[in-house]
Design a protein around this nucleic acid. Sequence first.
DNA 1: AAAAAGTACCAACATTCATTGGTACCTGGT
DNA 2: ACCAGGTACCAATGAATGTTGGTACTTTTT
Lengths: 212, 212
Amino acid sequence: MEAIKVFLVEDDPVWRKGLIDYLNKEPGLAVVGEAGTKAEAVERFLNAGADIVLMDINLTENNLDGIETAMELISLQADCKIIMLTSLTAEDVIVESFSAGAVNYISKSSFKEIPEAIRAAHNRQSAIHPTAAAALRNEFLRLKNEENQKLLSPAEKDILQLIHQGKTQTQIEQSLHITKRTIKNHINRILKKMGVKTSKEAASKASQKKLF
Amino acid sequence: MEAIKVFLVEDDPVWRKGLIDYLNKEPGLAVVGEAGTKAEAVERFLNAGADIVLMDINLTENNLDGIETAMELISLQADCKIIMLTSLTAEDVIVESFSAGAVNYISKSSFKEIPEAIRAAHNRQSAIHPTAAAALRNEFLRLKNEENQKLLSPAEKDILQLIHQGKTQTQIEQSLHITKRTIKNHINRILKKMGVKTSKEAASKASQKKLF
DNA sequence: AAAAAGTACCAACATTCATTGGTACCTGGT
DNA sequence: ACCAGGTACCAATGAATGTTGGTACTTTTT
């Protein structure tokens, strides 16, 4: 079986040398290219013909140009699999990395897991590391919630609230000073948007999903 | 140290008995409540005082009422940690589960990992399983992309496209039959939206992030 | 210096979406 | 038969956003 070809992007010469030696000793892994800057990475990447990219996020002091570099490599080869390597655990950096297209995110402190992560990425079994997975889940929930908030218009939310409190259409008519016709129209749009059949269903579902 | 208290929701009596025996034998784990239906779960959950819920997704044949049940339990106790248990690997079911608020998603076929997942969830170290993590990542990318598409208006996208092709404002003026003034205004809004300083930057960033 | 790009406002117009209400009809329960 | 809820349209109004272009000026590039 052929070795998995790894392209390494790391500015620190000590880490670079250390990682190359370390990975080349691993059975089934071979470092086929290396770069220390964004420019070098872009220049050498396609010729290296790598399966996996291992990318340090801080290519220069106080800079996240590894994320930019990742995006560049993906524009060069859409299906390239990039694993981010860093000591940072800030959620926004993790999220940015995945947003840029990275398949995994590993802390330099747990560098022992790198070979396993490379193999997993190569087999499309993205076993995302706990801290990164938690960040991804949080961001997913944030995005889902944002999407949910936009589903219903203010007037629709008002009406659904009152239905949830058990009010009839006649009672809502009095509460909001609008005609039953308007209410029926709003409810009809709500039912279509939410894919349910009755306003009670819509109200309880909306309450569970925090749609209002 | 006190044992982690687990509440089990599972309709199949064989699995239910098996899981209870299995988990109770694990050091540090104790099943403190069980339910076979949504109604039972809602009724018994708060009294059980559990730390973690292990929830089968199919409480009835061909039904995903485990997801609904999860949402119900979360409305009862917002911070309850629910692990979904299922044999399904459909991406939308996984996504729905996390959307409902689950912290993890385990296949019944890898039931040996359940104790570890329970401990991880209890320590807030959500080590999400590979298949689920991949689904979560896909959905995250889908949502991010949707968000990205909305950043720029149609006219702004058109202009950015042409800039990316290397056209000058004078050339764009001729292509789109609008004055240079309009173009400058569009570009100005684009630069503010994207937080960059030049239109070239904006164009290459937009191309990388697939904003048009 | 000239050309190209960018900044900082303002304003008319179009389009899209939300809100409100209309007519007319169907369904399920009491 | 009546009433509440629901379906299927249509339409006027208002608010928000997008589009286009204006004046006037500064910065950057060639």
